[in-house]
């Protein structure tokens, strides 16, 4: 591609701050004194695994295609989106960075200019994922530990989104951080929480987007967890999956210390210890 693509992947394992980042971006773009409506975000990016976008671009009935057939077409769908975009599109992605049978990357440099990779302590992810999917924490841990784990990968019905290979929590992290195709900027959820303005600004810079410090501060305020919780309790949130748990449930870091059993902590650390250490998440179990 001669002209740099307008696509920037906002990549993460689920429940790692992706929605928070998108709400920050929407508020930055909107630039209003009032916070953006979380159910009507003015962000055109969407999610890379959207079924509707795939069908609109290919004209095909995705229900007549296998998951692998769909993956083979996805790079071409993104190329079309990139070619038609006149401004940057930050597109949410939960897929791991993978390659197709012929070696072509699913989410490669030929369609995207850069990627922001958000990561969160897997022990907190496990709790959040359990609430989000209305499943037991042990089930969430099992899913995070499964190298063949995927979202929407069933074959007996039509899931709302296209299949997304997650390849387990460690597999997901290393797939994005170790690939050398798309320039990737790593952000830890915990750092973003401690100093949101500083780290959001860092991500914008990587993407070549400039913003005044005041505008960033205001967008950070509008995307504050208390504001998101306020809006969700008043009107609900369209992206909430669980019928019982709030989407913006706690957002805090380190909650695993009180919520997880010693066995659950050990199960996560045994499977993901190496990648956790690499990211600065210290093991609690020996």
């Amino acid at each position: 591609m001669t002209v740099p693509s307008h696509i920037i992947w906002l990549a993460s394992f689920p429940k790692s701050g992706n929605t928070w980042f998108r709400i920050f971006l929407a508020n930055l773009t909107k630039g209003d004194a009032e916070p953006a409506d979380i159910n009507n975000l003015d962000e055109r990016g969407g999610i890379a695994s959207g079924r509707h976008e795939f069908e609109a671009a290919t004209m095909l009935d995705s229900g007549l295609l296998s998951h692998d057939d769909i993956d083979d077409l996805r790079p071409r769908v993104y190329a079309t989106i990139a070619a038609e975009a006149s401004e940057d599109r930050w597109i949410k992605v939960h897929d791991a960075y993978t390659t197709l049978q012929d070696g072509e990357p699913l989410l490669g440099r030929n369609v995207a200019r850069a990627a922001i990779y958000l990561v969160r302590d897997p022990r907190d992810v496990a709790i959040s994922l359990a609430h989000h999917n209305s499943m037991a924490v042990d089930g969430a841990i099992k899913f995070m530990n499964a190298a063949d784990g995927a979202f929407c990968g069933g074959s007996k019905g039509l899931a709302p989104q296209l299949r997304q290979k997650l390849t387990g929590w460690s597999g997901h992290v290393t797939s994005w951080l170790d690939q050398t195709d798309v320039p990737v900027h790593l952000m830890r959820y915990e750092d973003l929480q401690a100093a949101p303005a500083e780290f959001f600004a860092g991500a914008l810079k990587i993407a070549g987007r400039s913003a005044a410090p005041d505008d960033i501060e205001r967008a950070v305020g509008h995307a504050d967890f208390s504001e998101l919780q306020r809006q969700e309790s008043e009107k609900g949130f369209a992206e909430r999956m669980s019928r019982t748990a709030m989407f913006f449930r706690s957002g805090r870091s380190g909650g695993w210390r009180e919520s997880l059993t010693a066995a659950q902590i050990a199960a996560i650390e045994q499977c993901h210890g190496a990648v956790m250490a690499r990211l600065g998440y210290r093991a609690a179990s020996g």
């Binding site: 290919t58 004209m59 077409l73 071409r76 769908v77 079309t80």
Partner: peptide, 19 residues
Amino acid sequence: RGPTWEMAGEVFLLRVPRL
């Protein structure tokens, strides 16, 4: 044209890979 199709006048071409 799109990822799987092309159009020229009253002719529309649709390609479903490997099918």
